[in-house]
Write a protein that binds this DNA or RNA. Sequence first.
DNA 1: TATAGAGTGAGAATCACTATCGATAACAGG
DNA 2: CCTGTTATCGATAGTGATTCTCACTCTATA
Lengths: 140, 140
Amino acid sequence: MTTPPREMTRPAPGRRDTRQRRAVLGALERATGFASAQAIHARLRAAGTPVGMATVYRVLRDLADTGQVDVVRDDAGEQQFRRCTPGHHHHLVCVACGRAVEVESVAVERWAEEMGRANGFTDVHHDVELFGTCSRCAGA
Amino acid sequence: MTTPPREMTRPAPGRRDTRQRRAVLGALERATGFASAQAIHARLRAAGTPVGMATVYRVLRDLADTGQVDVVRDDAGEQQFRRCTPGHHHHLVCVACGRAVEVESVAVERWAEEMGRANGFTDVHHDVELFGTCSRCAGA
DNA sequence: TATAGAGTGAGAATCACTATCGATAACAGG
DNA sequence: CCTGTTATCGATAGTGATTCTCACTCTATA
Ligand SMILES: [Zn+2]
Ligand SMILES: [Zn+2]
Ligand SMILES: [Zn+2]
Ligand SMILES: [Zn+2]
């Protein structure tokens, strides 16, 4: 394949390309699985690329709003971000190492739609996340 | 009607039957759909049955731990509680009025298990919530 | 290069939720 | 009904994540 112009760092239309935005995006790109805003902030500071807390949150929220990152809440209610394939899809996350794999979800999509129709609901959408222990962590 | 031995107020084994616990449970029972701890606290105060904030949270957490209430996080990350059928199941919630209906979920259960197996994950569990606008609210 | 205004960040403000711990009240016995 | 044991209360002081402020900085562009 060609893998041309890395759009990774390209700011969304109307957005400016700043060092901070690039840094947050980079940290997200570098992360194995999900990462919290706090974690990203800490990593950037440790990496010698300090970015203000407010900015980290601002960029992450923007990325989430434009569908460039996934957001889920962990049990403590903290937001966890993950850079991944654009478009609707779901994950199977390892509760031990955080690694996440995108899973095929036609079945749920169909089920959700079906349930909505069956109950007379419109504009039906859903939150679906799978958790478990990956083979690598299970073996340890 | 007979309104028999309402188990609703029966404290879990080892728990004491207090006015506060009864009040929280009652508020939950009375609620249409999901309710936040803050909301329950406010309602009880307004109803002239004041209960400490800490107690509301304590009771709700206990009920959740013993599977007597469902807990979900809204977009703001706030916990929402709902008294309902014990045992694993999912809901279709109206984003307008909060009313929620329990939906049949064999399909998702099977799908979740399948995905776990397919990816070598063990102890797979899931978070699944459906949202939409109920017919009543859609008509308004 | 000059300029408009998007973007930044230190620090204050929110806010849901938890920890403290002395006071209070269930409840099993007697 | 009295009483000791203790679970439970609740006013209050945290905690910790996320947001708000707003003067200052830098990107994008003519
Ligand atoms: Zn793992
Ligand atoms: Zn889906
Ligand atoms: Zn409705
Ligand atoms: Zn399920």
